[in-house]
Design a protein around this nucleic acid. Structure first.
Lengths: 161, 161
DNA sequence: TGTAACGTTCAGTGCATACTGAACGCACGA
DNA sequence: TCGTGCGTTCAGTATGCACTGAACGTTACA
């Protein structure tokens, strides 16, 4: 691997670490992000200089998250991994999901915690409503983006904002 | 603190931990989320059963993140903390910021990593473009939400989606 | 049937870091 | 000029967890 790739994979590892995920997972993800061909566990282990056990575990976790895909070839017993085709919406779904868990906790608080203050109750309700609204808007924006990508450059350049 | 509040603060602590932040930070945040009045470091330390040192450090971090606010009262040497008024947009900005750092790394890869495959280059470009588009849409949605909140229920119910 | 080459699992280790308790600096009031 | 009561800092600890190496189960091929 060239210097720039090493630099990138390491950076991606640190970013993953900052989000509470294993550093190796980030490096695997980074490596596959700049790779056209799917890569085997052995390739990844050697390129990244880590044990095959770690690669196996973390690649499976990433695949479960939906950001990686496991591919297999006929007559080849190796497992290969590659970046998921719809990578962007996957990562967005991942992030939105975490935020949703957060909002769900707020909802539980609103329902279970005895709150005297009307202002606090309104704050919690407002938070939940804002999340619902924004999640909706994000979904709509994503669909719109996909449409735009699918219908290639028309002569009229102009969808209005 | 009642059982439901303890349950909620602990849950919030675990959610914070899952995102790579100190558990105590989450519990502090949770406690202030369901509290009308600002709370002092001593109050928080006692209610949550942790050292004042931890509360001091973590509350300051959360304030720097923008999700908490430090308030002081005249003739009172205590520091008080409360949940930020514009909590939702703060947490959104926080999350969007982390995503942006991620996208910036992708951009660096596109510029520095020698990539032979045109498909991979297109993937990276597509990722960046999608992020820019979505960040824009999120910003617009947030402004729209704020407007809607500020202009209270008009007789004509109808802003269209 | 035996062997080699897979991916997975699991106990063990090392490292990072959250958290604590004590010391510290500082501002206020007597 | 003390003493008191703040918030902060810092060295030390321990707790969790990422990561490793070896053992394991499984499948394909000889």
């Amino acid at each position: 691997m060239d210097t720039a790739t090493i630099r990138f994979t390491d950076r991606m590892g640190l970013l993953f670490e900052a989000e509470g995920r294993p550093r190796i997972a980030g490096r695997i993800f980074g490596r596959l992000l700049v790779s056209e061909d799917p890569r085997s566990l052995d390739q990844l282990a050697e390129e990244l200089g880590v044990s095959k056990a770690s690669v196996s575990t973390n690649a499976r976790i990433l695949a479960a998250m939906g950001v990686l895909e496991r591919v297999c070839r006929p007559g080849d017993r190796h497992d290969y991994y590659r970046a998921a085709p719809d990578l962007f919406s996957r990562t967005m779904a991942e992030r939105l999901g975490r935020w949703q868990r957060f909002t769900e906790a707020v909802g539980e608080a609103r329902r279970t915690v005895p709150i005297r203050s009307a202002r606090v109750r309104a704050r919690l309700r407002g938070y939940e409503a804002a999340y619902a609204y924004l999640a909706d808007a994000i979904g709509a924006a994503l669909r719109e983006w996909d449409e735009r990508r699918e219908s290639p450059p028309l002569a009229s350049g102009g969808r209005t904002r």
